[in-house]
Design a binder for these strands. Structure first.
Lengths: 150, 150
DNA sequence: TATATTAAGGTCAAAGAAAGTCAAAACGAA
DNA sequence: TTCGTTTTGACTTTCTTTGACCTTAATATA
């Protein structure tokens, strides 16, 4: 029974029962659990992933924070399902297919679809060899962004 | 969450809601926020740049002032103008500035802005050295897509 | 008129305040 | 023991805040 990570996970999940969105101070939280600050990152990156239904955004520097948001994560949410299905690489063809599917299901409108297509366009991502990798990341990032509201 | 710089930014933006042109006294403003005068310069130079859609002029000496002006946006050309300002490389900060400008001018809605931000996010474009180059291309590609609708 | 004083604003680098990364060490279960 | 998971700590990156020093303009004074 690995206590620390589980406690931190539980602690955050309890906070999230109040609201779908919670702001943390990494150092403060680390101090509360008397652990290294990077322990917080570990917990977030292993238990609060997109697959788990969470999105994390953060800001460094003075006034920095970490915000954990819960997103709709279920089989019925096409955005989430597709975002999770993206692996390390994504061809332009696959990306187009995903976008048209979202368009058909009215999760995107024409304009948004055009925007996304243009972002993962081969011409915009010129470097050979890395193209599919970068496309995968961008696509995942965009789908995650869309998840952050509905 | 709210940091000194953010408050100052908000304060100035509220002033600008009355008029597209606002005159400030640097020292007075600094005193109001109980901070170093150069803090005002910091806020202006990080949040009121040309990319953001603002122009600053100032005068030193007795009777000096800082004037912040909202640049009149030629709605039809704004996309084009911004696209032209992208060179071979684009930092994340510059990209954000451009997107927030388009948002403020209502050429993008929140969702589209989030989509674009996510597409040019540093986490999505991890390759060191090439990041700003690729970001420039993606950004241009997206702006072009927006230009091409009907 | 020439100069000194005062009243602005500008610049830049250093310090401070967060969060992120990564790899090594420690731990625990099979 | 071995292998995957946790935990830690040193180092990095990003963003903010401050302060010392510089430049410019207006005004007062010799």
């Amino acid at each position: 029974m690995s206590v620390l990570s589980d406690s931190i996970e539980l602690f955050i999940k309890e906070l999230m029962e109040q609201s779908d969105e919670v702001s943390l101070q990494r150092n403060e939280l680390a101090q509360h659990f008397a652990c290294a600050p990077s322990q917080i990152n570990y917990v977030l990156s292993t238990r609060f992933t997109l697959e788990h239904g969470y999105v994390i955004i953060s800001r460094r520097g003075g006034g920095g924070y970490i915000r954990v948001m819960r997103v709709a994560a279920d089989r019925d949410n096409l955005l989430h399902v597709i975002a999770c299905r993206i692996g390390d690489a994504l061809s332009q063809h696959e990306a187009h297919a995903m976008i048209s599917r979202l368009l058909e299901d009215k999760i995107l409108n024409e304009r948004e679809a055009r925007l996304m297509v243009s972002a993962v366009d081969g011409c915009a991502l010129p470097m050979q060899g890395l193209q599919d990798t970068v496309r995968a990341r961008i696509m995942r990032s965009m789908l995650t962004a869309l998840l952050q509201e509905d």
